[in-house]
Design a protein around this nucleic acid. Sequence first.
DNA 1: TTCATTTCTTAACTTAAGTGAACGATTTTA
DNA 2: TAAAATCGTTCACTTAAGTTAAGAAATGAA
Lengths: 193, 193
Amino acid sequence: MQNLLFDFISKYVSLTEDEKNAILSLNLFRPAKKGTTLLKKGQLSQDSYFVLKGCIRTYYVLDGEEKTTAFYTEMDALTPHCVIDKTPSKYFISCVEDSILTVSNSDMEVEINSKFPKFEKMCRVLSEELLAKEQIDFDEFKTSSPEQRYLNLLQKRPDLIQRVPQHQLASYLGIKPQSLSRLRARILEKSRE
Amino acid sequence: MQNLLFDFISKYVSLTEDEKNAILSLNLFRPAKKGTTLLKKGQLSQDSYFVLKGCIRTYYVLDGEEKTTAFYTEMDALTPHCVIDKTPSKYFISCVEDSILTVSNSDMEVEINSKFPKFEKMCRVLSEELLAKEQIDFDEFKTSSPEQRYLNLLQKRPDLIQRVPQHQLASYLGIKPQSLSRLRARILEKSRE
DNA sequence: TTCATTTCTTAACTTAAGTGAACGATTTTA
DNA sequence: TAAAATCGTTCACTTAAGTTAAGAAATGAA
């Protein structure tokens, strides 16, 4: 399981055995059962997550309704906004499936960054990449209809449609669960012609 | 005008005179007339932008139609995805107004980063902040209606509504220009009651 | 297993966005 | 300056998403 983490890191920097051991000594690995809440709205957590196995999501509660806005699966990293901007979290984070995560707090990161400067660089490159990717995803969302977004998701993350409840997918697509049901029926109808 | 750049940088790191001079010697400043295209779809540019004065936008051309997805105004930084992922640009960048920009290519950044390590850190912190902000903006977009988005924009960036053409604003809000006109009329109607 | 809860789908109705067209008003450019 | 192009708004019509409600299916807990 550790190897998954080091495989990921090796895409950005190459680590010596010493460096790997320094990371392992931090004891980052943590299993989390389906339904576990990792972060609640209003909290000022310092923890960042990396998904080794499973699936976690961020969601808002607006007018008593859950709105899921992101899913993180294998090899995805999530640093909540509250870690960055030091304001109470606007959203919840919870486990969609039984998962294995690494959890690191920002103190650890400061320590590792100062001990191994190559980490600073890795974090910079990683967040630049994630930002560019997030912008493209946002652009695609803005420029397409719910139906196009669904078909797009079917192409890009077909696993999500299998492993995630429909009502969570719906808000992820920016629509209501009923509209997602209808939209899927419409697509099936078309493909039958 | 330079001071605006240094004011911005000082939010992240403090620079010595030497460091400031090293930056000035790069000759980054560039005025750009309204309508100037800074980047075309398909290009593999290395240039990043920082807006000192004016406004620039990114837009796609889909089915012959322009879809504006982002505006960058005073003190905003823009690194196009092609600089990060080394793939041909998916979008255009052009000036909405006469503007004064700094333009830096990634070679310069590599050079500055190795000469002054504190730059590495600034870039990491900046892109982490921008990522967190982008995610929140995306979340707000997903969880609200076109009308709510417009009202939200009116709160957060009232200047944009004045300085930017309506049809560009419309795609920024994820709708057609006619719908934006109608939506504004609807809001005005309500406020008259 | 059974009961309760949650989830998904369907349907009828409402509301708002998309579409195509028309019209001045403004801006561009020849 | 005159003609052409662009821009913003309005309208009528179409399409699709939101809303409310109901019922079937799946899931979870006692």
